[in-house]
């Protein structure tokens, strides 16, 4: 494993554990939401770490390879074998992009709900807000 990957996985581990800790243990609505966001970020970092290759080509950006290319006509294109040796793994980047979009939408819904709950109860403490639920 590359040093970058080790670092990325360790950071991701810290992020995910901190996120889970915040969701489960912390008593503040916003801290729970931030924790949820941490988990998403950590998972994204894991995905990026999987696709990493030092000095690798980025398949989405550089058209180094064409399936039907003949090296003589397209001298700047690589043959498939060569390309596959050099390129970084493209799939995780696509997954991360999708997950960022999903994360943003869930985050916005959760934040909107926190605003509504704060206006109703004038507190961010989960303990107090959800205690009031038992009574009504």
């Amino acid at each position: 494993m590359e040093p970058f990957q080790t670092g990325a996985f360790l950071t991701a581990g810290v992020l995910i554990v901190a996120g889970f800790w915040a969701i489960i243990m912390m008593d503040n609505l916003l801290k729970k939401v931030i924790g949820a966001n941490f988990v998403g970020d950590g998972v994204n970092l894991v995905l990026i770490g999987i696709g990493y290759k030092p000095g690798g080509l980025i398949p989405e950006v550089t058209p180094h390879f064409h399936a039907s290319a003949i090296p003589s006509t397209f001298s700047h294109f690589l043959a498939f074998n060569e390309f596959a040796e050099l390129a970084s793994y493209p799939l995780p980047f696509a997954l991360v992009l999708t997950n960022i979009v999903i994360g943003a939408s869930t985050l916005s819904v959760m934040l909107a709900l926190s605003v509504v709950l704060y206006h109703k109860y004038q507190t961010l403490s989960v303990q107090k807000i959800f205690e009031a639920m038992e009574e009504d």
């Binding site: 489960i24 989960v126 959800f130 205690e131």
Partner: peptide, 13 residues
């Protein structure tokens, strides 16, 4: 099994 979020969190953990 009340609606409290803390108890659910505990059982989830």
């Amino acid at each position: 099994n009340t609606d409290s979020i803390n108890l659910t969190s505990f059982y989830v953990a």
